[in-house]
Simulated scan of single mutants.
Amino acid sequence: MPDTADVPAIRRAHDILRTLAAQPGPVKAAELMRACNLPRSSLYLLLDSLERRRWIERREGGYIVGIELMALGAAYLRHDSLQTAFHRVAAEFVARCNEVVQLAALDGFEVVYLAREDARRPVRLVSDLGLRLPAHACALGKAMLAGLDPAELDARLPAKLARVTERTLATPEALRRELEEVRRDGLAQDREEVTAGLVCFAAYVGVTPLGKRLAVSTSIPSDRLDNAHRQAAIAGIRQVARELAKLTAALP
């Protein structure tokens, strides 16, 4: 059923911004016109308005998300002290395991990355702040989906699950079976389901007073994941989740 309160201009601007945010580089106007299904005249009016407000910027013959939109988005993270609490406990994990730690929230059926504490060595990551990933594909998403009651999970679950790699769970039935394991073990895993050669472990943190459903994870290249390192990383990420849960309970 269509939303009768929807404002077309805002919906179209939102579609443009989401399209730009999903791409690693500038997007040309012709590509935006196709992706957003907009007439040429409407598109250019919106692009001009967004550019004047610095929500978007021209770059290399196309458009990117602008600095003003970045500043506005950063205000979301200032509404609580979540990042400060996260970095405090994540730094201890990095000191012990020398692996990255990531914090994310659940938005619908997507994971949104909110913060990251980097290791002291390079790792192949896709977790830029603000990035969205389908929840069924990553350990963070599975950790948060497992905390939903069955009715809420069904309401969020799409009929078809998109594959990110050939290892991504492809059916709702497969996802439900894995979520049962997550509930039993208190740990979610991504076995090269987002990035080939990268394994992730995640643990559920909880829901903040502002209603954010949170989880933390670590991502480790499979070629350096021996059994001892695996066990240390799993124990460590569970500890991060427990400590962050205590701190977030006191957030505004």
Results as ranks from 00 to 15, higher is better:
residue 105 A to K: 06
residue 56 I to W: 08
residue 195 T to F: 02
residue 55 W to N: 09
residue 210 L to E: 12
residue 15 D to V: 05
residue 114 L to I: 06
residue 87 H to P: 00
residue 159 A to Q: 13
residue 205 V to M: 07
residue 155 A to C: 02
residue 138 C to P: 01
residue 161 L to R: 07
residue 167 R to G: 06
residue 186 G to E: 02
residue 139 A to N: 05
residue 18 R to L: 04
residue 163 R to N: 02
residue 48 D to L: 09
residue 52 R to L: 10
residue 94 V to A: 14
residue 150 P to K: 11
residue 82 L to C: 09
residue 101 V to L: 10
residue 114 L to Q: 08
residue 23 Q to A: 15
residue 3 D to V: 01
residue 133 L to C: 02
residue 241 A to H: 04
residue 81 S to P: 07
residue 19 T to A: 15
residue 24 P to A: 09
residue 127 S to E: 00
residue 32 L to S: 05
residue 230 R to I: 02
residue 113 Y to V: 09
residue 155 A to M: 04
residue 234 I to S: 02
residue 21 A to P: 00
residue 245 A to I: 02
residue 12 R to T: 03
residue 223 D to P: 00
residue 150 P to W: 11
residue 30 A to M: 11
residue 27 V to P: 03
residue 59 R to Q: 14
residue 236 G to M: 08
residue 82 L to W: 07
residue 206 G to S: 04
residue 101 V to E: 00
residue 216 V to T: 01
residue 198 L to R: 04
residue 145 L to Q: 04
residue 135 A to M: 05
residue 219 S to H: 05
residue 74 A to S: 12
residue 127 S to V: 12
residue 140 L to Q: 09
residue 121 R to H: 13
residue 239 Q to L: 12
residue 136 H to I: 00
residue 68 E to D: 11
residue 69 L to W: 13
residue 45 L to Q: 11
residue 37 N to K: 14
residue 193 E to H: 08
residue 125 L to E: 00
residue 249 A to E: 15
residue 20 L to D: 03
residue 76 Y to A: 14
residue 237 I to N: 03
residue 44 Y to G: 05
residue 226 D to S: 04
residue 115 A to E: 10
residue 84 T to Y: 07
residue 80 D to Q: 12
residue 109 F to S: 06
residue 2 P to M: 10
residue 18 R to E: 06
residue 91 A to L: 10
residue 66 G to A: 06
residue 184 R to K: 14
residue 13 A to Q: 14
residue 104 A to N: 05
residue 4 T to P: 15
residue 63 Y to I: 06
residue 212 K to G: 01
residue 2 P to L: 06
residue 57 E to M: 09
residue 26 P to A: 15
residue 129 L to K: 10
residue 155 A to V: 01
residue 147 G to L: 01
residue 244 L to H: 02
residue 23 Q to F: 06
residue 146 A to L: 02
residue 75 A to W: 13
residue 197 G to I: 01
residue 177 R to D: 11
residue 28 K to Q: 15
residue 188 A to M: 02
residue 10 I to C: 01
residue 101 V to D: 00
residue 193 E to T: 02
residue 71 A to Y: 06
residue 230 R to K: 12
residue 70 M to P: 00
residue 10 I to S: 04
residue 14 H to K: 15
residue 108 G to T: 05
residue 162 A to V: 11
residue 141 G to S: 05
residue 174 A to I: 00
residue 1 M to V: 02
residue 97 C to R: 02
residue 126 V to G: 11
residue 218 T to E: 03
residue 67 I to K: 15
residue 206 G to I: 03
residue 6 D to E: 14
residue 25 G to V: 08
residue 63 Y to S: 00
